[in-house]
Design a protein around this nucleic acid. Sequence first.
DNA 1: TATTAGCACTTAAAACGAAAGAGTGCTAGG
DNA 2: CCTAGCACTCTTTCGTTTTAAGTGCTAATA
Lengths: 333, 333
Amino acid sequence: MLTEREEKILTLIVEEYIKLTKPVSSNLICKRLKCSSATVRSEMKVLEDIGLLEKTHTSSGRVPSEKGYRYYVDNLMELKKMNAADMYKLKVIFDNHQLNLSDTITRSLEVVSDMTNYATVVLGSTSHDNLLKQIEVVPISEEQITVIIITDKGHVQHKTIILKDINHDDIKKTVGLINNLIVGTPIDEVSQKLEFEVKPIIGQYVEQHEQIYNAFYNVFTDFTNVKEDVNIVGKNKILDQPEFTNSDKIKQLYSKLDNNDILENIRSIHKDNGNNIEIYIGEENKIDDDVTVIKTTYKTNNDNGTIAIIGPKRMDYERVVSMLEYIKENIER
Amino acid sequence: MLTEREEKILTLIVEEYIKLTKPVSSNLICKRLKCSSATVRSEMKVLEDIGLLEKTHTSSGRVPSEKGYRYYVDNLMELKKMNAADMYKLKVIFDNHQLNLSDTITRSLEVVSDMTNYATVVLGSTSHDNLLKQIEVVPISEEQITVIIITDKGHVQHKTIILKDINHDDIKKTVGLINNLIVGTPIDEVSQKLEFEVKPIIGQYVEQHEQIYNAFYNVFTDFTNVKEDVNIVGKNKILDQPEFTNSDKIKQLYSKLDNNDILENIRSIHKDNGNNIEIYIGEENKIDDDVTVIKTTYKTNNDNGTIAIIGPKRMDYERVVSMLEYIKENIER
DNA sequence: TATTAGCACTTAAAACGAAAGAGTGCTAGG
DNA sequence: CCTAGCACTCTTTCGTTTTAAGTGCTAATA
C-alpha cells in the first residue's frame, strides 16, 4: 500500500511524463509539493524499488513502468468530465441525426484521432450471428453473374462469379431453392445447410447443378471468411508520437495494424473490471508492447461492436477514457 | 546529343546507383569500361554540366538527376524479358482461372509489391460510365431499410438509411417507379433524372414523398461520390526503401498515399509516348517529388482501369516495366 | 524521526579536433 | 585524346573534453 505522498508523486510523474515526454526529475516534482527535492528523491527510490518507476540510465529522471501506469490507471486517475473543446467537437457529430450509426461512429473516431494523435479502431458487428435474409442474382454478361447476399441485420456483400454457358433458368431455380430452404439460417451454418439440404435437391431440378452449386458454395464461404468491418481510423496520426519515429518501429507496428486478425484480438480480449472501459497497457495487449489499447463495446437494438484507441503507453488516459465513455453513451442512445 | 561512351557511362551510373543506393565513383565505372578513372571523371563532369548527373557534395561520386533518369528511361533502358523468377510467380496467378478479374489483378500486384518492395495501386473502373441496372430494398428494422444499387457492369453498393414511420407500400411504390423510370440511366445522371422525372410523379402516388425522396436522393449522391476502387497494395513495402526511413518523410508520403483524390491523379494524368507504359519521375508526378510512378491502363470486354507502381526515383525501371507489361497483357487476355 | 542542504558521482549529449577514407579536379606528359 | 599523379575537399569516424542534468548518500537540522 502506498502512502498518500507516494501516490501523489506517482500521479505527478505519470502526468508530467505524458505531457513532456521526457523523464521527470525530482526538482520538477518538488515544485508542486511542499517539500525538497531530496525528499522527493528518496520517495522516488522507494517507488522504483516497488517497481512502479524506472530510470533510463543511472542519473536520469524517472519514467513510469508498465506496473506504474497500471497502478495509476487503477487507483489514481480521476474521471473528470471531458474538456469543453473535445466535448463540443463530438457533440456536433452526435447531434446530426441524418447520419446512420456506422457513419456516426467513424466520424466521431476520426475526430478523436485528430485531436489526440492516436489511432482508433472500429470493430463493427460481425455477421457471424446474422441470419441469411435474402439472396439476389444479377446477370452482368454472357459469363458473369453478380450474387448479392443480404442478412437480417443489413449486412450486404456481393461477388461476381464466372460461369460458363449460363442457363438462366437453372440459376433462377437455384436461387429460388436457396431463398426457400435456407433463408433464416445463421450465416455460419449456411455452408452446411447448403451441402446437406440444397445439394441433394438441386441435383434433381437443375441441369448444371455441379457447376452452379460450387459457385454458390464459394460465394458463401467467402462471405463467412471475410473479416468485415475491421476499420482503422487515423493510423498515420500515430507517427506524430515521439515513440514512433524510428522507421523499423514504424514498420513493425504498421504491419500489425494492417493485420485484421491481430486487430480482431481487441474484440475477443476481455477484462471484467466492473467498468465500461477496459485498458490494456503494453504487454497486456497483443498488438505491441509499446502501445496501450483502450477499448469499450457498445450495444444497440440491432447492432453491437467494439471501438478502441491505440496510442503509446504514455497516453493521456484520463482524456481518452472520458472521450470513449462519452462516445459509448451516445452510440447507445 | 550524347556520345556513345557518355551514354554508356550514364547507363552504368543509373544501374549501379539503383543497385547500390550510394553515389557512384569514377573508379567503379572505369572497371567496366576500357579506360582510366581520370577519363571517366572528365566525362562525368560533362554529364553533370548537361544536367544529367549530380553530386551530393564536392568530392562525392555521382547520382543521376531527374533529367538523368528521364534520359535513361527514354533512350538507354533495354526492355528485356522478365527474369524467370518474377515470371514464374506471376504466371501461377494468371494460370488460375477460378479467380475473377479484380481478385487476379490484386493478387498479381501483391506479388509485384512483395518482390520489388514498391507500393502498387489499382484504380479499377469507375462506376461513372456505368448504367443503373436495378435497385433493391430490404427492410431491416422498424426504422431502417437497406438500399442496394446495382449497375450494368456489376458494381454494387449498399447503404442503410433511417426513415421514421416507414410505410412499406410507399417504399415499394418508390422503388417500382425508380426501377421503371430511371433504370438504364448513366449513374452520373441519375440524380438529375431523379429530380426531374421521379420527384414530380412520386408526389402524386406516395404519401411520405418528401422524406422518401430525400433518402433515396442521398443514397444516389453517395454512390456517385464514393471514389470506389482505389486500392493501394503493399504500401508498407516502401518502408524498406532507404529513401524513406525518415519519419517526417514517411508521414508526408503516407498522407498522400492515403488520399484517394491524390491517387486518382494517376488515372487522369496522361502521356502519349506511343508506348503502353507511362513513367513519371519525381516532379513529373503529383504524388511526391521523391517517387517515380509507372503506370499502365488495361481494357477488357466489360471493364477497364489503371494499375501503377510507386517507388523511389531510384527504381528498377527495366524490371518494373517488364512486369507491368506482362500483367497488362495477361489481364487483357 | 522526518526533512533538507550539500556535495560527490554518473551519464548523456554536445562540442571539438585529428585522422582516415573516398572521391574529385586539374595539370602535365605520353 | 588519354592517363598518371597529386593537391584538395568533404564526410565519417573516433577519442577527448566539457557541460548540464540528475541522482544517491551523508551529515546536519527542525
